[in-house]
Each structure stands twice: as C-alpha cells, then as structure tokens.
Amino acid sequence: MPRIFFLLLFWIPPLFAADARLARDGVELFVSPRTPEQIGAFYAARGLPPAALQELAKVCFLTVGLHNKRKEILWLEPAQWRFVDAQGQPQGNEVKRIARPEWAARWKALQVPLAAQSTFGWTQLPESRDLYPDESVGGNLTLVPPAGNFSLIARFRTGADGQGKMIELTVPNLSCSREGATQ
C-alpha cells in the first residue's frame, strides 16, 4: 500500500533540542521541539504579522508526526494527552497545552488577519482526527514553556467507535529551548 504522506510536511533543522521517534502497537510517533528562531522564520515566511510572531515567540512548539500502522482507526485527541514535568513521574506538574480556541481568542485580540489565522491553523495538529489505516498526520502543538525537561504521555483510542484497545506512548526528556524567546 503506498504510503500516505504527512498532511503537513515542513522541515526545519533541529538545532538544539533532540527529536524523539517511537514505534509501538502499530503507532509511529515523532516529536521534535522547535526553537523560537525556527518558529519565527517559519511563520514569517508564511505571512504572519509581527504581532503574531511576537506572541508565538512566547510559547513552546512541538512538531508532531503520527502514522497509523494499525488495521483499524486510531484516534488522535491531543486533549487526552498529558505533558508532565519532572520526567513524567506521577507527582510531576502538568504542563499546559495551548489549544486552538485559545489561539483563536489571541488572534482576535491582536486583530490578526483571517488569512494568517487560517495558515496558522493548517500548521497545527488537529484537535480530533480518526486516522484511517496507513493515514498520517502532522502538525504543531504549543505549550506554556515549562521550566525544565518534561514528558509527553500520549493516549490513543482505537476502533471506529473508540472502544478498542487503549494505547499509551510516553516520550521522556523533551525540552524547549528558549534561546531567542521574547520573554
């Protein structure tokens, strides 16, 4: 079966933070922390205005790729994922994810043009997606910058009704470089 390409394909050399790749239970997960410089260059080239770029420089960006290698539907639901500092230990603190509605409110307050909002939206990981067998998806997630390293605990429902086997993948030792950040 021909591979379905990531719906979002852009590549920026990882200069500081380490990428992570996991493959287990028919799920391939790729996570790459981005630096503020990388994000600024990427979105400036796509026409986002200076006010939006300043806002983006304040947050932590992770580029995430996901490939469903299972023979059933795999549910992408970042709202069900946890980002935890202290290396993912249970007592670790939650790292807050900035979801799409929050970005929409920020863009509205900053009067960012609709075209720029739309472009930004296409580069974000969907909030919910029923990934078909062999389907891939890619995009960015944004976090309130944590102080140190953190872990991603990604949970996936499976099956058309989401009632199949629950899959959990943990990506440890993630970090967000703040070099070049505005605050």
Binding site: L7, L8, L114, A115, S118, V137
Partner: peptide
C-alpha cells in the same frame, strides 16, 4: 480562497486534500 474561510467550510483533513 483569500481568507481561507471557504476551505474551512469544506473541512479537508489537511493540505493537500
């Protein structure tokens, strides 16, 4: 689709679609 709003209504799962 200059402001992207027509595309939003069609709800493609990504680009291209």
């Amino acid at each position: 689709d200059r402001d992207g709003q027509v595309t939003e209504r069609w709800q493609p799962r990504g680009l291209p679609a």
